[in-house]
Amino acid sequence: MNIIYKASMLFLAVTLFTACGDKAKESEPAKEETSAAPQSDIVEITAQQFKSAAIELGSIESKALSGTTKVNGILDVPPQNLVSISTPFGGFVKSTSLLQGMKVSKGQLVAMMQNPDYIQPQQDYIDLKSQLNYLKQDYDRQVQLSKENINALKTLQKSKAEYESVRARVAGLRSKLQLMNVNIGSLEAGNIQNAIPLYSPINGYVTQVNTNIGAFVNAEDVLFKIADTGNLHAELTVFEKDVPKLQIGQKVRFTLANESKERTATVALIGREISAERTVQIHCKLDKEDRTLLPGMYLKALVESGSSQVPSVVSKAIVEFEGSKYLFIEDDKTKDAKNDGGTHFKMVNVKTGVSELNFTELIFDEGTEYQSWKVVTNGAYDLLSKMKNSGEEE
């Protein structure tokens, strides 16, 4: 009986405790649910905040982001715009002032070469030149005597042969000395050079310096490389399966590895040989020359195939928040209504499509007048942060 009584009392106590707990919960005021979501879709910033956040405005552009071919490549120069400078005859580097990156002009002195061996061909030229003058006079005399039937024909023929032989040797030496950049006029006046100059054959920039003063270089050694960067082209590598999509004149959009700026080019040549890697090289002429670019720069490109244009915006203009994507656009109506001197931006929910080469497709409902929007293309996440902070304070 005591056991039944104790069990009944324990059950009654538990029931009373549970009931009191429920009443306590009912008596507590309901806590408001908090959310990090902004309370408004409008954010206002001052002129100083605009500047410190580096806000930049742009527009929604039409671009071909579908039906394009993604390729990689490098910037290169045509063979006629890339020069390797060597000495025609081995020698020591007497002087040079070239440094990598220096600008040089066509005909500019780039180095002086020195070698005792440069003296001998100049001496031979002067010696043969003197013999040639004598033989020319002798030959002219024999021709005159032959006309008067005074000398034998054999004598005339021998004089002519000697004259022609020396004349050929003088012409050969002249050509050799011209390759050495020896001043022939000065040499014929008796001035022998112990050093020869090297000149730049093009305008351009020094891309390689492979020597120094006092170094001995052979004729096959490359001392300097000079590139005319005004005629750079994009050399792209295209896989075999994408070759049928290519045509001369197609537009190419590309970005360099060290920048986000988009540049354009036009397909000029399509290779006719497939490499061992099953790729084809295509050459594209840059639509706008930029002499600050350098050969060998890596790039990523899109070759447009003439597909329809879609509205797109710079990818960094799009911010993500709580699973949705937004743009910030300048809101002139709020600015005019408040008339407080600040800049107002409205956060607009958007749908996106393909993303290629730093641009993202935007998908709008029919009738959306996005053409006049001034979109924040830089600093959008700063605006989102300020909007969230303002929402939490409220």
Rank of each mutant, 00 (worst) to 15 (best):
R272Q: 15
V310I: 09
N81T: 05
E320T: 09
G172I: 06
S159G: 08
T87I: 00
P38G: 00
V93Q: 01
D287Q: 08
Q157N: 10
A189T: 04
K225G: 06
Y381M: 11
S86M: 10
F345I: 01
F239Q: 07
V217W: 08
N151K: 01
F92D: 03
S175D: 11
S175K: 12
Q247M: 07
T334Q: 07
Q247R: 00
T292D: 12
R169C: 11
G391W: 04
K6I: 14
L12E: 14
T377L: 05
K388F: 04
S308P: 01
S86E: 09
E259M: 04
T155H: 02
K176A: 13
L294T: 05
S200N: 15
I196M: 07
T237H: 01
G391S: 07
K261Q: 12
Q178G: 00
R141M: 01
I274V: 15
R291N: 13
A7R: 13
R169T: 10
T266G: 05
Q193E: 08
H283I: 10
I119R: 14
Y205K: 15
K63N: 01
D332V: 05
K288N: 12
E262L: 14
Y134G: 00
L65I: 07
V77D: 12
E330F: 13
S84E: 15
F345M: 00
G230C: 02
L98D: 04
G101T: 07
D117V: 05
N194W: 07
L145T: 04
V222W: 13
V319G: 02
R291P: 06
I55R: 02
N231C: 08
N258V: 13
Y118S: 05
A189F: 03
L156C: 05
K300T: 15
K103D: 10
E273L: 14
T207D: 02
G91D: 04
G342R: 06
Q48H: 08
R291H: 08
P201W: 15
F328S: 04
D117I: 00
E220L: 12
S305E: 09
E235Q: 10
I329F: 00
N133S: 15
K70P: 04
S175H: 13
A195C: 06
D287P: 08
F11R: 14
K338P: 06
V170G: 09
K300C: 07
F359I: 08
V243I: 03
